[in-house]
Design a protein around this nucleic acid. Sequence first.
DNA 1: TACACTAACGAACGGTGTTCATTAAAGAAC
DNA 2: GTTCTTTAATGAACACCGTTCGTTAGTGTA
Lengths: 230, 230
Amino acid sequence: MSGRGTNVQHHRAAGRPSVAVLSRGLIFETALRLLDERGENGFGMREIARALGVRPSALYNHVRSKEDVLDGIRDLIVARFDLSGFGVLPWDEALAQWARSYMGSFAAHPPTIAMLAVQPVAQGSRTSLMYEAVTAGLMDAGWPADRVFEVIVGLESFIIGSAFDQAAPQDMFDPSDDAGLSAMRRAYDAREQSLEGERPSSRAFERGLRVMLSGLRAELAQLNRDTDAD
Amino acid sequence: MSGRGTNVQHHRAAGRPSVAVLSRGLIFETALRLLDERGENGFGMREIARALGVRPSALYNHVRSKEDVLDGIRDLIVARFDLSGFGVLPWDEALAQWARSYMGSFAAHPPTIAMLAVQPVAQGSRTSLMYEAVTAGLMDAGWPADRVFEVIVGLESFIIGSAFDQAAPQDMFDPSDDAGLSAMRRAYDAREQSLEGERPSSRAFERGLRVMLSGLRAELAQLNRDTDAD
DNA sequence: TACACTAACGAACGGTGTTCATTAAAGAAC
DNA sequence: GTTCTTTAATGAACACCGTTCGTTAGTGTA
């Protein structure tokens, strides 16, 4: 009945508890679980506290703000990104591995995408270390410093957009009852049908990723040719 | 003293005013102006009402909710998208025109990007008509129905990401004081320097756009070849 | 044993979007 | 021209949110 930690039902008196009931990690994991289960609405400090059997104000002994919680959630997700290719595989394969794991990790937690795409990256977070690793990987592979940023941002934009699409295409634009939207209606249905159970937009993602990578390969080759010519 | 509409300072009695002081259009325009001036914070129903010389509850005679206001703002911005190329120019040039105007319209109103990228598109809005036009344009040019959606989503993802980047790169990830981020620091500085007053990331946008379009041209050519072979 | 520190509770605070009763003008019906 | 419905303003709430603060109690150190 008791000791599960997550669901102490009856009253706890004020004052420090004998056994620790909260930690940053526990708060982050609970928050992520709630976000997945209930979506962006119904996810707040009071809900997190309730799920942990605690009063809302208790959270603030471990966490500075809700934004801090969001940062913690992001780090949980970013921890699953695959950086192992950089320095080992060719840069384009490493980048593809990173992009796929990026996409997959966010797609596994749909409601986080919208929230995290908007939020600036916290300093000192695991997330900023991830960016550092990718940046360094590309520069070691010969990409000029003044282009690396744009390469990452461009690719990332595409990834986030795809994750958005994968998470909630029917919500984002559903031509359901709207009059005068025949082309969209047809395109929407045709796509729905041609997917046939395939994870939606993973196909579009693979195609787009290949297009972007081949473009980048061509650009780097061109840059190297220009450099050799000097 | 009176009748200016936008800034009636002193008390107005309850009851319907002799001259109309509010309309949906006026509310949307005011809201967009406030969003541009003060950013996402300091933009709320109370602020909009104050700017219009009106009590907050008065807005709800013209507008269903804050979300409704957001939808109105989106339509204001989307109205500036350039759809003129579809049916006139080759599909790829029409698409490029659309993409550039899309990017430019949002970049002109930075705080809107984050808010609108997240919000689903309202039914019956000018925005959904815009999507209809693009969809029809691509299908008329020979794109198969089951691919159009993914083409648009992929390109749009890239556009929104670029607009994000253009709006607030220094906020999104600033490697300022963080230790152990040498590669990012170098890339960040090199890019900053090489821009030299150029509108940030418009260069990255042009490059990325060209990459995606050439990829799409190749794909459509391949699709046509497959069809001819049958 | 004394004292600082940590971490819970519980009651607030200021802010938000929104609703509702009230009031008064506009416009339609007879 | 009077009456009635509709429209659109005010102003006072409501529920909810993230957050702060005073209080209480257990932990670890001098």
